[in-house]
Nucleic acid binder design. Structure first.
Length: 455
RNA sequence: GGCGACGUGGCCGAAUGGUUCAGGCAACGGCCUGCAAAGCCGUGUAUCCGGGUUCGAUUCCCGGCGUCGCCUCCA
């Protein structure tokens, strides 16, 4: 049974399932107006690990993650670049899923688009107006937060507290609102802006209305888990919840939020605009698995710094795991080998403890070491069972290890020539062949059993 | 101003009221190897500061210093 920190109660508690064996998750997806950044990568990787682990334990997961394709930032960019906004959203969505593929993040089971749900949003906003929880002004429709008794639950603040500080920003519709914390459900469009019809004026829905409508439509009331980055806690998730509460509906049962990616100074990445290595750069320049590895070695709620040193260390640790995988691929493929049950039980305990991946990884590396030691000692049965456990754990966390793969014929010939040279004690020739192979980018391992190469 | 998080070895990063503070990366010694690499065995180095509670605190409490986040649309 997975125990997970719940933002609403500020405690680690069991993740209950509305329907036994089935888990419903809503994850706030990207607003498609630009390339994904490292923070997006972290969020999706964290929840990908969660999903894969749950599925690995036999739970059927329905993961709904939206695409926000209506937003001021999209409209602004379209205007600035003088091109249709649909062109931007389509392109950005393609780039997004390419990046996800690069990270080995499984596609959500459902990917609703905000543009597909405008009618439902209009309907919901109409209901909120009808029951006097929302009101119209000249520029839009607002939810009256004072009518939501526990507004501030996720922010862990009351209304006064929320208002105490952040006064200096420009607030949409500030002069028309009844209460400063009221938020826009609908924004009436200005001439030339994209708009959808609505009884109170053509316009576009506010961000918070999308997610509440899509999550309730696809997952229904009282779905199991709502997740996203820390920064969505307030106002986005608070406001989603406020709408559901105002409608008298049961919303998410459990709330999960992941920590930020920070820069070298410890500041949130999205703020340091200059040096944002975006996600695409990371995938292009490094082994994409390194980011997953780095995040697995950090607790999901803590901050993580993504730097050269970190990523390099992750790449190197992966090299060790790849070497192990190559060494044990035969044993792992042998269906008669059963994975070490003690190891898997410990793995489950650690993962069930609020997704304690750092400790799960410590176990993984320790198991690799034990398996290598068994192999060195000639204990192939013991090594096989430990190796099978390693492969099982990797599956559960979405880490794909490289085995030999395809080796071109000429490379294989060079490897056997190397062995022949060693057998003939012509070490000069053997060294030359090894250097040549390494020059071609192959890792060469010469053992008593012969030479093996891999990328 | 309100709410909150954090400060652990050379670097990253877990955990914990008490014999040895995980793991990764790096370093060093050894085994293995024709030599390497990989692997294995072993070694060293850490809990921001000051009080308090306690038989005992890195862990709990108070204060300080430092860093960061949220406080109306950023994962």
């Amino acid at each position: 049974m997975l125990h997970l920190f719940d933002t609403a109660t500020q405690t680690v508690r069991p993740l209950a399932m509305r329907e036994p064996g089935h888990l419903s998750i809503y994850l706030c997806g990207p607003t498609v107006y630009g390339p994904p950044h490292l923070g997006h990568g972290r969020a999706t990787l964290v929840y990908d690990v969660l999903r894969r682990y749950l599925e690995w334990t036999g739970i059927q997961v329905r993961l709904v993650s939206n695409i926000t394709d209506i937003d001021d930032k999209i409209i602004n960019r379209a205007e600035r670049e003088n091109r249709p906004w649909q062109e931007i959203t389509r392109k950005c969505e393609d780039v997004w899923f390419d990046a996800m593929k690069g990270l080995n993040v499984a596609r959500p089971t459902d990917v609703p688009h905000a543009t597909e749900y405008v009618d439902e949003m209009v309907e919901m906003i109409g209901e909120l107006i009808a029951i006097d929880r929302a009101y119209t002004t000249t520029d839009g429709v607002y939810l009256s937060v004072e009518t939501v008794h526990d507004y501030g639950l996720l922010a862990n603040q009351n209304l006064e507290g929320l208002l105490a500080g952040g006064g200096d920003r420009e607030v949409f519709g500030a002069e028309n609102k009844r209460h400063p914390a009221d938020f826009a459900l609908w924004k009436i469009s200005k001439p030339g802006e994209p708009s959808w019809p609505a009884p109170w004026g053509d316009g576009r829905p506010g961000w918070h209305s999308e997610c509440v409508v899509m999550s309730l439509d696809l997952l229904g009331e009282g779905f199991d888990l709502h997740c996203g980055g820390m920064d969505l806690k307030f106002p986005h998730h608070e406001n989603e919840r406020a709408q559901a509460v105002a409608l008298g509906k049961t919303f998410a049962n459990h709330w999960m939020h992941n920590g930020f990616v920070v820069d070298a100074e410890g500041e949130k990445m999205s703020k340091s605009l200059g040096n944002v290595a975006n996600l695409l750069d990371l995938i292009e320049h490094y082994d994409a698995r390194a980011y997953r590895m780095l995040l697995l070695q950090t607790h999901y709620r803590g901050p993580v710094r993504v730097g050269q040193d970190n990523i390099d260390a992750a790449v190197k640790s992966l090299a060790g795991l790849d070497a192990f995988a190559a060494r044990t691929s035969a044993a792992a493929a042998d269906g008669s080998v059963t994975a070490d049950t003690d190891v898997l039980a410990q793995f489950g305990e650690r993962m069930d403890d609020d997704i304690d991946t750092p400790n799960a990884m410590a176990l993984l590396f320790d198991t690799v070491r034990r398996a290598n030691a068994a192999l060195d000692a000639g204990d192939h049965a013991g090594a096989g069972s430990l190796a099978a456990a390693v492969h099982a754990m990797c599956t559960a966390i979405g880490l794909v290890l490289k085995t030999e793969g395809d080796i071109p014929a000429e490379i294989a010939e060079m490897a056997s020539a190397l062995d022949a040279a060693r057998a003939a004690k012509d070490f000069a020739a053997a060294d030359a062949l090894r250097a040549q192979l390494q020059g071609l980018g192959w890792l060469v391992e010469t053992t008593k059993q012969g030479t093996s190469v891999r990328r």
